[in-house]
Computed example of a mutant assay.
Amino acid sequence: MLDRWALQLVKKPLNAGAVILARHSVSADSVTVAGFAVGLLALPALFMKLYWVALVCILINRVADGLDGAIARIQGPTDGGGFLDITLDFIFYSSVVFGFALADPERNGLAATALLFAFVGTGSSFLAFAIMAEKRGLTNFKYPNKGFFYLAGLAEGTETLCFFVFFCLFPGFFTELAYTFAVICMITVITRVSGGYLALRNDDSGTV
């Protein structure tokens, strides 16, 4: 829901950083992989309850996720890069939730499972519609720079980052925060499935 405004706020600094990296022949894919590697370090940090370390790793990952897209737009986007980016993003998101489950299995385990369940719904509806949109040549004018049809929802990247930050700053409230975010994600699933189905059905009938 907040991505369109958040992207505008970080667009200039990300583009400036991307120009510098591209000038030094740093590829978008290398930034994607490096950012994922740093982000994945949040998992052992969370297991050891080093929440500030995990927070730094998460923020670096998200900066890298913005930089790789900006670099790709300079150097030319590729299907392989888009595939790598979205796949590693979903693995990273899940690893953070899993890390909190490992930090305190008895207290956090069920809430983490509920959130991962919701993540499956948001991720699958997001990617399934992107496949259909690509097949039909549909374009999302709200996110023209995305390499695939970016199906919006109540829970997007900005909301996910905000909750991850809250998890790290207030680990004692992970259960309450995780359940809250799971509900938000499930609302997103409902709106994406219903909205996506209606959009595709209308496209089938030629009314879109």
Rank of each mutant, 00 (worst) to 15 (best):
M132V: 09
T139C: 08
L50C: 13
F100Q: 01
S124W: 07
L67S: 01
G157W: 09
G206P: 00
A16S: 05
S125C: 08
L88N: 02
A101R: 03
R107Q: 12
D104E: 12
G109L: 01
P13Q: 13
E134W: 10
F149D: 09
M48P: 04
T139Y: 07
A37W: 01
I187T: 05
A28D: 00
S95Y: 10
I190P: 03
F47S: 14
T87N: 02
P105N: 04
F117Y: 15
Y93N: 00
F126W: 14
Y150F: 15
G121K: 04
P171K: 00
S27A: 07
G69V: 04
A118G: 07
R136L: 09
I91W: 04
C162M: 14
G109T: 02
D65V: 01
F129K: 03
T188Y: 12
F119N: 11
Y197K: 13
L116H: 00
V120Y: 03
A133D: 02
G196T: 11
V165G: 08
A70E: 08
A152E: 13
R192T: 04
G195T: 08
A178Q: 07
T32E: 04
D204E: 12
L2A: 13
V96R: 01
L127T: 09
A130G: 00
A45I: 11
I86Q: 09
N140P: 02
S95L: 11
M48G: 10
G195I: 08
P77G: 05
C185D: 05
V53N: 01
K12C: 09
V10M: 12
A42L: 04
A152P: 03
Y143I: 00
P77F: 01
F90C: 05
E134H: 15
L41N: 07
Y51V: 06
G121V: 05
I58Q: 07
A70K: 06
G76M: 12
V19Y: 09
K49I: 13
K49A: 15
V183L: 08
A111H: 04
G153W: 15
L127F: 10
C168E: 01
N61C: 14
C168W: 06
R201E: 12
I131W: 07
L88A: 02
Y143S: 01
F129H: 07
F90N: 11
A16V: 07
V10A: 10
A130W: 00
G81P: 02
K12P: 09
L14Y: 00
G153S: 14
Y197L: 14
A118D: 01
G99Y: 14
D85T: 04
